[in-house]
Amino acid sequence: MAVDLSIETALLLERWQGIVNSMAQVAEVPCVLINRLDKNEICQAVGSVSVPTFYCGEPVPLALNTYCSQVISSNQPLLVENAIGTRYENNNPTFAAGFSYYYGLPLLWPSGKTFGTLCMLDFSSPDRASQHCSLLTLFKQAIEYDLQMLQQQQDLLKREQQADKKFIQLFLCTRQK
């Protein structure tokens, strides 16, 4: 029986929404996001955002000077405790929305290819947010495990489809004889 990846993806997004909601509540920050890379744009997969003026769900060009674009280009975690007076002030819609604190981690597919980012944002550099960086790392590991499972299910589905095609071809060939 083939796996319905649309259902699996919906369940993942629901679980990820729970993760970001919990992280925002525990760390007492106004914004936790899981973003995905889509060609040359960063798109929000799920988010817990308590700031009505902050963009939600709008793709952001990777070329902009966003915190997440730095994480994606470097493939390294990024901690910005105070972006005021740094290069992150310019051409950064996240900073323009008032977020000067950022902690973000790259999210990777099992192949090592970039999926996106997991990040936590705040208006200042509160100790409470920095205290939860290790928790964000644990959530990163859980999300990457989910990506691994999704990849395995996609691979299995492809193998099943190929086997079905071979069976149909074999059946048609034997039937024509």
Rank of each mutant, 00 (worst) to 15 (best):
Q76T: 05
A96Q: 08
P30N: 04
L33G: 01
P77G: 05
L138V: 09
L13N: 10
L156C: 13
F139Y: 15
A45H: 04
S124N: 07
V49A: 07
L12T: 15
K113L: 06
G57E: 12
F123V: 02
G112R: 03
G47D: 11
C133L: 10
G116L: 01
A63G: 10
L156P: 13
S74T: 14
Q131N: 10
R36C: 05
Q131M: 11
L157R: 13
T86M: 04
G116C: 04
A27R: 01
Q44M: 14
V80N: 02
T53I: 13
D122M: 00
I42G: 10
L172E: 14
L138G: 06
K158D: 15
Q141T: 08
P30L: 02
T9G: 14
I42D: 05
E14T: 14
E89T: 02
D4T: 09
S130H: 07
Y67S: 08
P93W: 07
R175D: 11
E89S: 01
L108C: 08
R128W: 00
A129G: 06
F95A: 06
D146Q: 05
C31S: 14
V3P: 05
S100F: 05
L11W: 00
Q148G: 14
F99W: 01
L172N: 11
P93L: 11
E160F: 04
V49N: 14
D164R: 14
K158V: 13
E58V: 13
L150C: 12
L135R: 12
C68W: 12
V26H: 02
C133N: 12
Y55L: 09
Q70D: 08
Q148R: 12
K140Y: 01
A45V: 06
K177H: 10
A96G: 03
A2K: 15
I143Q: 05
T53C: 12
E14D: 15
P110V: 03
S6A: 10
C43H: 05
S125P: 06
L118T: 01
Q131E: 09
C43A: 07
